[in-house]
Design a protein around this nucleic acid. Structure first.
Lengths: 341, 341
DNA sequence: TTCAAAAATACAATCGATTGTATTTTTGTT
DNA sequence: AACAAAAATACAATCGATTGTATTTTTGAA
């Protein structure tokens, strides 16, 4: 017993002198087993401390009732909310969830995909890493007729795949427009890696807003980085070379926040001298002084929608060709860092 | 091929007219297969797009090379750092990690344990939920000779089990002592649920510091809650009924931070009127004004150590009786919220 | 009481990989 | 050339549960 020898249906079968197939059916509440027998079996099962071996079951049925999730980093607020949405829907639909973080490394992403694939998860939700410019690992998984839904970072490489994302262009356009409307004339942009479509869009939205308001684009005002905390500081340093800059739109909150803190130490008044807008609505954005105007992405809803799509694909593998995608509209949250008074 | 019929070793076996046992050994680099044959097999395997079925493999070998992790909430900074430590060590040791969050719900915790157990993870790292006062689910898992290591929230119910935690008493004692040394005479405490040992310890440390400095304990100054953001505000409200209070030690940062924000709106000067110390070193604690003095728990190290212990247990199931535990010393990080000038 | 239909249960193959044992092939020594 | 030892490969059982088919038992109508 406590020797670690797990109880199997065969042990129950022997103990009651009932065939293991009947035991299996009883434990699965099959109507093919009489109520009397079923109860006898279930009683014996708990008595012996039986616990189903999912490995065996999954091997036989060729399903795991498990969804794999690959995201860059679970600690990031946005992804944490996405996960919450995923788990809620998955739970409702009777699926388990395996969460894996690529830490923005392609190498890890590939290893994770292989592991999930070899463990035969029923489908994968993925937000690709910043490094991901090759897609062989995803392609071979999809080619093998496995369901995949992209989250937040849709991949141009798989136009036929479902993906759920937000309108980055519009959000950026609106944020930049707000700064312009507040009278800011020289607006800088902290931009992310341009191999990621989402950061391209954010830059485009910024540029488009300037153009449409007849403000010429100054390339010197665009600072590209991976938007880490350190990048926020170093970009802020560079930004100070242009004293005319009176506005900043950062493609994420992390960089915006560390920039604000750095600028404050340099005696710059926020928002009086430089108005700032971030992206993501991280919890810190509410607490920092001044509180940060930012863009809220509906992560929870995205997670829910993506999971619904994936589950649909899992259940209807046939119509996999159909392209179901959704682009949600993020919300501009106006706080003090962008206001004149 | 793209019909979703996965390639198995038997397909390779047939294609090359080599027995499947040899194929299996070749793919596992067994020395029992000649180099020539092995290369032929591996070439064919990649050619056919073979991918091992871990379900079958794990069923046969009775090992999954996977560690299950159950924690209350992955989004919490402390747990995020613990996970980072777990993943790093697990990765080095060749284990996969499955991360699950109980969301502080016993019901979910039980479901997760069953799922991990039935998927035959090799061992479990757990930080129990706030609701967990019954331990049957953990007991039966342990009784079945499965390795478990407790993290952060050691369980008195399993003195024979390994656990890795911090010295909550000392950390609290030191924090309270600091406030006393700064001349604070009326120190309040935001305390957590007392069914959790860790919060008991934090309260004891607080009380002990007061006693040893000849400050009488005023029960009215102790506010118990689950230390959520809302609790921070409501406890701060109650605290204002005692205008003599000039210091606050909160058992977590979340409540401390929302309290500070509330108190600021009421015109209370922090730290001048009330000095504040939190617990956890959440990222926000650095950004809030005034920056929050707090206690840093070595989450990363805890995750690493716990994983090392668990892996050791997995590899040496025999000496499971041996009790390996470690209590780490957290670090008091002094920022502005506790300083007089 | 008889017997066909329905219900309950048993039989046996299967999922895909692993592994102890048996057999065949190769090697090298005399 | 003969043959034992070593190397390489094949055979076959196994992990634990599921499931289509076959068999037995029960039910109830005539």
């Amino acid at each position: 017993m406590s020797k670690g020898n797990k109880i199997t249906i065969h042990d129950i079968s022997k103990a009651l002198n009932i065939d293991s197939s009947t035991v299996s059916r009883a434990l699965n509440n099959s109507p093919r087993v009489s109520v009397k027998t079923r109860e006898k079996i279930q009683k014996k099962a708990t008595e012996l401390g039986y616990q189903r071996n999912s490995l065996a079951s999954n091997l036989r049925t060729n399903r795991t009732n498990t969804i794999g999730v690959i995201i860059p980093r679970i600690a990031r607020h946005f992804f944490a909310t996405v996960i919450a949405g995923i788990e809620e829907t998955a739970y409702e639909e009777g699926y388990n969830v395996v969460i894996c973080q690529s830490l923005e490394s392609l190498d890890r992403e590939i290893k994770i995909m292989n592991s999930l694939a070899s463990n035969r998860v029923d489908g994968i939700l993925i937000s690709t890493s910043m490094e991901t410019s090759k897609f062989d690992h995803i392609k071979s998984y999809i080619d093998n007729n496995n369901p995949v839904v992209f989250i937040d970072r849709p991949s141009e490489a798989f136009p036929e795949c479902s993906n759920i994302s937000i309108d980055n262009f519009k959000a950026s356009y609106d944020a930049t427009k707000l700064l312009i409307e507040k009278g800011r004339k020289h607006i800088a942009h902290f931009s992310g890696p341009q191999n990621i479509g989402l950061y391209q869009e954010r830059k485009k939205g910024y540029m488009s807003a300037l153009q449409e308001h007849n403000i010429s684009i100054n390339k010197n005002y665009i600072f590209e980085s991976i938007l880490s905390e350190e990048d926020g500081i170093s970009c802020a340093k560079k930004l100070l070379k242009y004293p005319e800059i009176d506005g900043l739109y950062s493609a994420n909150d992390t960089a915006a926040i560390s920039a604000i803190q750095y600028l404050k130490t340099k005696g710059i008044q926020i928002p009086k001298q430089i108005a700032v807008i971030g992206f993501n609505n991280d919890p810190i954005s509410e607490v920092i002084e001044p509180s940060l105007t930012t863009i809220h992405q509906p992560g929870f809803e995205m997670g829910k929608l993506a999971t619904e799509m994936l589950v649909h694909q899992i259940k209807n593998k046939s119509d996999k060709g159909i392209h179901h995608s959704k682009i949600l509209v993020p919300e501009l949250i106006i706080r003090k860092s962008s206001e004149n008074e």
